[in-house]
Amino acid sequence: MTAARTLTERLEACYTGVVHDVMRAMGLSDFTLPPELRPILPERAMAGPAFTILGKVDPSADAHETLLAWTGLLSQAPAGAIWVSQPNDDRVAHMGELSAETLKNKGVRGCVVDGFARDVNFLLEIGFQTWCRGFTPRDIVGYWLPAATNVPVEIGGVAIAPGDYLVGDRDGLIRIPRAIAEEVASRAEAAIATENLVRKAILAGVDPQTAYLTYGKF
């Protein structure tokens, strides 16, 4: 008998369009992250609970201090999570080669950085899904420090609490509150099943309005 899929696996199989529609129908809002955040592997879906990082710029920090704090962050990231960073910075990269290798080996599913990344060819080579706003070779050394981990963060007006689920694919990223993630997954799976019936009807030549009135979805 096949083992039951985890919530992460179930959500990863639900494309963001249907998740969005389900959450909108539930009366929720402010859950879609900015479209400027883009994945380096757009063909690969990603889902999982958030391990959150809040950062600050500190040009007075020395190189050792910044690297010690950064490696400490990497040590905290739990397997099965998504690294979600609000660095409060738009000048340097907040994900790169050695960090991605470390996180991937720990079982972290990918990262979302409200800022920049670097070493992108290497990230592509190892298949570490990275959502970011762009790329730069500049790093954090002597410039940036973490302020807190596992605290609520905000990205583009979307509040993300530790343990909230993120679902991302080529269309974009959605945050699902942890308390309703199971319900959202179940409703999204049901909606996908209904959409499959609509698709089958359309391919069979049924008028689209008739299909909509029959199944209540389009």
Rank of each mutant, 00 (worst) to 15 (best):
L123I: 06
T52A: 06
V22M: 06
E36V: 08
A13E: 15
R44M: 12
V120N: 11
M46A: 05
A93R: 14
A47P: 07
E12C: 10
T8K: 13
L37R: 09
G48V: 03
G55H: 04
F31A: 10
V112E: 09
A100C: 03
V19P: 15
V112D: 15
Q86K: 14
A93I: 09
D21P: 02
L28G: 00
W83I: 06
V22I: 09
I40R: 12
Q76V: 02
A117I: 03
L73F: 04
A50K: 06
T52W: 05
D89M: 08
N88E: 11
V108P: 07
G110I: 08
R44Y: 07
L33W: 01
M23V: 02
A77E: 14
G115S: 14
R24P: 01
Q129N: 14
L33A: 07
P39K: 09
G115D: 07
P87A: 04
M26E: 09
A61M: 03
D62K: 11
F116I: 12
R118I: 02
M95N: 13
D30H: 14
D119P: 05
V84N: 15
A61G: 02
K56G: 10
L123C: 05
A81E: 09
I40C: 03
C14H: 03
D21L: 11
D21Q: 09
V112N: 14
A69W: 09
D119M: 07
T71C: 04
P49N: 01
N121K: 12
K56S: 14
V84H: 12
T8A: 11
L54S: 15
T52N: 02
R24T: 08
N121A: 14
E97L: 05
I82R: 10
A100P: 00
A25R: 14
G127D: 06
T66C: 13
T130I: 01
M26T: 00
I53E: 06
E125Y: 05
C14D: 03
A50C: 15
F128M: 09
T32D: 11
A47Y: 15
T102E: 14
D21W: 04
D30E: 11
A63T: 11
S99R: 01
M46T: 07
G96C: 07
R91H: 13
P59L: 14
